[in-house]
């Protein structure tokens, strides 16, 4: 398992791991207008590699607004075009609520654990 530390997005990218054909992107802290720029860059960079699967682990995300949501929607659109599976993991209640308010909770594949997302 390859592991690399990233500090993009003003610290919003906690870690990026590669496991077989999957890439796991761990986010942390608040994902808002300020930090979603870095998250967008990291996500698009990962998707550019065209892995079979991308898992965005949001266990350590405390807050996300519609800027973060827009970044994930864009990543979802790119992933669908290139047939990469995209899954979100570890959404806390605060983060999950913005998906529900925006009615995007049924658009994304949302898993409880990384192993579920990778299976």
């Amino acid at each position: 398992m390859a592991r690399e530390q990233k500090n993009d997005g003003d610290g919003a990218i906690k870690n990026i791991r590669r496991e077989s054909q999957a890439v796991i992107l761990e986010l942390q802290g608040d994902i808002d207008l300020h930090r979603s720029v870095g998250v967008r860059g990291a996500l698009l960079e990962v998707l550019h590699e065209k892995p079979s699967r991308v898992v965005v682990n949001m266990t350590a995300v405390d807050f996300m607004d519609s800027s973060g949501l827009a970044t994930l929607v864009e990543a979802l659109q790119v992933s669908r075009r290139q047939k990469t599976k995209l899954a979100l993991v570890g959404l806390g209640a605060r983060v999950r609520s913005i998906f529900e308010i925006s009615r995007l909770d049924n658009i994304f594949t949302i898993c409880e654990t990384e192993s579920e997302a990778l299976s």
């Binding site: 607004d65 949501l69 925006s102």
Partner: peptide, 18 residues
């Protein structure tokens, strides 16, 4: 329109929902 899934345009909806 929330059915038109694309990046952005959700801020006012969120404000009015809350």
């Amino acid at each position: 329109n929330l059915d038109d899934v694309r990046p952005g345009g959700l801020g006012v909806h969120i404000i009015k929902s809350v």
